[in-house]
């Protein structure tokens, strides 16, 4: 089965398609000159893309087939006069017919009509801790969602430099879930917020098992986020941004970087790490990736899986290189492209 990648860069979007996941065709750019920051394929086969411009701001576009795009007229927006600004849409997800957008300045918006109109989620956007939310280096952004497949009222979101929140009542109320994550505050008293989650992944068989790439390292929760334990066995560095999980094998993938003050691939080698034992341990799965003079990092949205069997894994770098594995990271192909800084990669079968 073929695969289609949406590659969002700082200067436009690109499609990479392959029938066999060996030979790739790359097309684009579309939205030339715009940042393409998130993508989603709807259950009906349509596409949703989020774009942003430092000058003209963000927007959401819809497309039936990926060729013609139309901006939605009633996109996410904070109320007129609000001191928050909609600067960027960081993630788009669909769950049970509802679309979710995680945005910067941090907030969540939902759409019940396929992305044509969007409404805020006050329980999170006006959270009682909101006044204490402060941005990280990437801005104050909500950038990841997880959903409980068994419990339609339970979901999680991650906000950079704030932490993970969970709702158990369909989004009406949200509770910070960061206990066990290392924090560096001005005193030793644990704070519910101020935790810089970089990425989240979830075990499809047990939604309480959540994997967290945090600013302070790699963590796992076995209880839906009630508590977190560090699991970095085998890692040269616990720092990094993306973490993804292949649904069939339940293998985890991440792309570590050398410490937050550097944010470079360790030793100039682009590295993917894999866990085949539910996060108990990690090992390199980087055969074929550039092993020297590679200093482009992988941003939080720039790694994806296709959920085919065997699973394909894809990543783009800040240097504009694009890499694909068709065998769960056992080997990698470096696509012959030199794109702008890659912000986002989505992968879809078919």
């Amino acid at each position: 089965m073929g695969v289609r990648l949406l590659v969002g860069t700082a200067k436009g979007g690109f499609w990479a398609t392959s029938d066999d996941r060996r030979e790739w065709e790359v097309a684009g750019p579309f939205f030339k000159g715009w940042k393409v920051t998130a993508g989603l394929r709807l259950e009906d086969g349509g596409f949703v893309a989020a774009v942003a411009s430092e000058i003209y701001g963000p927007a959401i576009f819809l497309s039936a087939g990926g060729d013609e795009w139309e901006q939605v007229a009633d996109g996410p927006a904070y109320p007129d006069g609000d001191d928050r600004r909609l600067r960027q849409i960081w993630t788009l997800r669909e769950n049970r017919g509802v679309l979710y957008a995680g945005v910067q300045d941090a907030g969540v918006f939902t759409s019940g009509d396929g992305g044509r109109s969007w409404r805020p989620v006050p329980g999170l956007n006006e959270h009682e801790t909101r006044a204490g939310w402060t941005p990280g280096a990437g801005g104050l952004c909500c950038h990841v969602f997880l959903f409980d497949r068994a419990d339609p009222k339970r979901m999680w979101c991650g906000i950079s430099a704030v932490g993970v929140f969970r709702t158990d009542d369909g989004g009406a109320t949200w509770t910070p879930k960061n206990r066990g994550v290392y924090w560096a505050h001005e005193d030793e008293e644990f704070k519910e917020i101020g935790h810089c989650v970089h990425g989240l992944a979830q075990d499809p068989g047990d939604p309480r098992r959540i994997f967290r790439q945090d600013h302070s390292g790699m963590y796992r929760s076995r209880d839906g986020g009630e508590s977190w334990e560090k699991n970095e066995r085998g890692l040269d560095s616990g720092f990094g941004f993306p973490i993804v999980l292949d649904r069939a094998s339940r293998y985890l993938f991440a792309a570590p970087l050398e410490a937050d003050q550097y944010r470079l691939p360790v030793g100039g080698a682009l590295q993917v790490v894999r866990s085949t034992d539910g996060g108990d341990s990690w090992h390199s799965a980087s055969e074929g990736l550039p092993a020297e003079h590679a200093y482009g990092g992988v941003l939080r949205g720039a790694m994806a899986v296709d959920n085919l069997e065997p699973g394909g894994v894809y990543l783009g770098t800040t240097s504009g290189t694009l890499h694909a594995s068709r065998d769960l990271g056992d080997s990698w192909t470096n696509l012959p492209v030199s794109l702008p800084r890659i912000l986002h990669v989505s992968a879809w079968a078919g």
Partner: peptide
């Protein structure tokens, strides 16, 4: 109408 958020801010 889709130009509004691109040309004008929340304060109009």
């Amino acid at each position: 109408p889709r130009l509004r958020p691109h040309l004008f801010n929340e304060a109009g």
